[in-house]
């Protein structure tokens, strides 16, 4: 019984991790259709922000929750201004440019901080489930994923900014005709996506440790999740994370982490074969 609870907790935290690392991409790719291959490096920069600020004596919570989104959001705004803005609507060119950006970030961070793993100890300690011990930080990640999703939902659904952003993504010309400057909306949205990725990096830093190439471990999963999710970016990401995270964790328990990853990919391929436009391309089409 206790074991079932522990397994369930692991599944939930596996799902939460997928949600956290995918949300930033969901905004940038799901809403803006910009294929940002530097998404993983935004995570990595968030992780480094957290580790460095904590190393300089800044409070742990500020280091994990506040500084990474601010720093990476700013970086995102600069990247949008210098690079992405020139390439809207040119998907292949964007891929190439952001891939180059990703390599540049990896190289730059390696030069600055060296190519080695650093980390911080996870806060919260542990709690007991029967005779099992579970890290408290796992539950915190679950809570964080819920809060992040809720905030995105509230912003998109109930604030004027969210309405304008959604309107602009749907029909930029109409939005412009109504007096909105699409350029600024795109820039803000991209920066917001980057900030979410930065936050994700800060959140996972205590669990995974941080190194310049850590983004590569997450970017594929994030893309698979967002694409499997389909058109409704928030609902899609949540549903896809739930499905893929569960399958992957269950298989990891039953076999090894290798088959956990294999199962995740197999399910994603199967789903895209059956539902080429993603889960929300068929179900929950009117959701956000």
């Amino acid at each position: 019984m206790d074991y079932a609870v522990v397994v369930a907790l692991q599944i939930v935290s596996g799902v939460a991790t997928l949600v956290i690392v995918s949300l930033g991409l969901a905004v940038v790719f799901g809403m803006m259709r910009v294929i940002n291959l530097a998404h993983g490096e935004f995570l990595m920069l968030g992780g480094y922000t957290a580790i460095l600020s904590y190393g300089h004596g800044i409070n742990l919570w500020l280091s994990i929750l506040l500084l990474p989104p601010i720093a990476v959001g700013l970086i995102g705004a600069v990247v949008e201004r210098l690079l992405i803005r020139r390439l809207y609507g040119r998907m292949i060119d964007t891929m190439l440019a952001t891939w180059g950006l990703s390599l540049a970030f990896i190289g730059g961070v390696t030069m600055l901080f060296g190519n080695s793993v650093t980390g911080i100890s996870a806060p919260f300690g542990s709690f007991a489930v029967g005779r099992f011990h579970v890290a408290g930080y796992d539950l915190f990640l679950v809570a964080a994923s819920v809060v992040m999703s809720l905030v995105i939902w509230v912003v998109l659904k109930f604030t004027p900014a969210g309405l304008i952003a959604r309107g602009t993504m749907q029909n930029a010309e109409m939005a412009a005709a109504l007096g909105v400057a699409p350029d600024r909306v795109y820039a803000m949205t991209f920066a917001a996506g980057a900030a979410l990725s930065g936050l994700a990096g800060g959140l996972i830093a205590p669990v995974s440790g941080v190194l310049p190439t850590m983004g590569t471990a997450y970017i594929a999963k994030a893309f698979i999740t967002v694409i499997t999710g389909g058109a409704a970016m928030l609902t899609g990401t949540l549903v896809a994370s739930g499905l893929l995270g569960t399958v992957s964790t269950v298989f990891t328990f039953l076999t090894t982490p290798v088959f956990g990853e294999v199962a995740l990919l197999a399910v994603a391929i199967l789903l895209l074969r059956l539902l080429p436009r993603g889960i929300t391309g068929r179900f929950l089409r009117r959701a956000l």
Binding site: F124, G125, A135, Y137, G209
Partner: peptide
């Protein structure tokens, strides 16, 4: 390797 160091971290974080 570097990635596997997470094991010791997560082991300690789980209070084991």
């Amino acid at each position: 390797g570097g990635a596997h160091i997470s094991f010791y971290r997560q082991w300690a974080a789980a209070g084991l």
